[in-house]
């Protein structure tokens, strides 16, 4: 790990100007991912700006009846927050299925969104990786790719995004509020993370020095009927093979509205808009859920080791929607 300078600013604008002047600077929040990656030599910032005390660490109601989550709210506090549990249970469930209690006590909302991929080649500086070292090649395409993407990948990168929370927030139409050198912006979470394309080194659309300050959730009533289902290789403390976050509004056996997002399948939390489209206005039935899942997964392109994710994603979508349709009645 390279020596680095530790800084802490008193306010957001000061922090942003500090880091704007330091091209190799990075933000430090809970540290659960960046400290890990610094030890591996995957990230080597010259400077860390500690932002833990800088952004709000509470959850408050917004004017439109939604909620605003401060970027510094820890994963465990957010999971335990009453409003989240009752109005957006998928987010609470997603958080609780992620990492361990210790890590959730450290990790923050903002930091969670910016987790880097768990691709084993990205994490190993002795192997080629376009995300870590642009132009060096992708080791996963012809290598160990059991945990890699089936949707939206490119010839340059097949990594997946590891966050559980972000998948639930993607399903629930969240907005990410940022402050950067160019001021404040409010980004639909779906647009925050990128597909790899020819620039896999860029996980998100954020500019250098742009700080996530909050996540906002809309007041949509039926999000109280939401859930998160994660499939992993052991019962706890493991990254997702595939996960599904979904919310459903059912009336008289008909799907009035639905949200679906997938984790573990792409470079970003994958909003299943095609499946949603196929389901709106349709009657609740396992056959319809299955058909919708298959429409979404039509474009899936498996690698040598991850074709299982297609039936797995399909089955988990069907199951999650079935559970929601029963609970939502």
């Amino acid at each position: 790990m390279k020596p680095y300078r530790y800084e802490r600013s008193e306010d957001v604008s000061g922090t942003i100007s500090t880091i704007a002047e330091e091209p190799e600077g990075a933000f430090l929040a809970g540290g659960t991912n960046i400290v890990d990656l610094m030890k591996l030599g995957v990230m080597s910032p010259d400077m860390l700006v500690d932002v833990r005390r800088l952004t709000p660490d509470d959850v408050e109601e917004t004017e439109d009846g939604g909620v605003r989550i401060g970027a510094a709210v820890t994963n465990s506090d957010l999971a335990a927050e009453r409003t989240i549990r009752s109005r957006y249970p998928a987010i609470s469930e997603a958080l609780l299925s992620g990492a361990s209690a210790q890590l959730r006590n450290m990790a923050t909302t903002g930091g969670n969104l910016l987790q880097r991929t768990r691709c084993v080649y990205f994490q190993d500086t002795t192997t080629p990786c376009n995300k870590r070292e642009p132009g060096s090649g992708c080791s996963a395409i012809e290598g160990h790719n059991k945990n890699h993407a089936i949707l939206g990948a490119s010839e340059h990168c097949v990594a997946t995004h590891p966050s559980d929370m972000a998948v639930a927030m993607t399903a629930l139409d969240a907005f990410v509020v940022t402050h950067g050198p160019d001021g404040e912006r409010r980004i639909p979470i779906e647009e925050l993370h990128r597909l790899p394309g020819s620039e896999p080194e860029r996980d998100t659309i954020l500019e250098h020095g742009e700080l996530i300050t909050a996540v906002e959730l809309p007041p949509t009533a039926f999000f109280s009927n939401s859930k998160y289902r994660k499939v992993r290789e052991r019962a706890s403390y493991a990254f997702a093979l595939v996960s599904v976050a979904a919310a459903m509004d059912v009336e008289d056996g008909v799907i009035r509205d639905v949200r679906i997002a997938l984790g573990g399948v792409a470079h970003k939390p994958w909003r299943a808009t095609k499946a949603e489209e196929a389901l709106r206005g349709e009657p609740v039935s396992e056959a319809n859920f299955r058909a919708a899942a298959e429409i979404e997964l039509e474009d899936a392109e498996p690698l040598s080791g991850n074709a299982y994710k297609i039936p797995l994603a399909r089955n988990v979508i069907v199951r999650t929607l079935s559970d929601l349709s029963e609970e939502g009645r």
Binding site: L48, S100, Q102
Partner: peptide
């Protein structure tokens, strides 16, 4: 942060002390 053997209470909460810079 993958095994928990380093767990301490930091300001009352359990955390992985291996992923926590002392300076912070």
């Amino acid at each position: 942060g993958q095994c928990g053997a380093c767990t301490v209470l930091l300001d009352g909460r359990r955390v992985n002390s291996c992923l926590t810079f002392a300076v912070a």
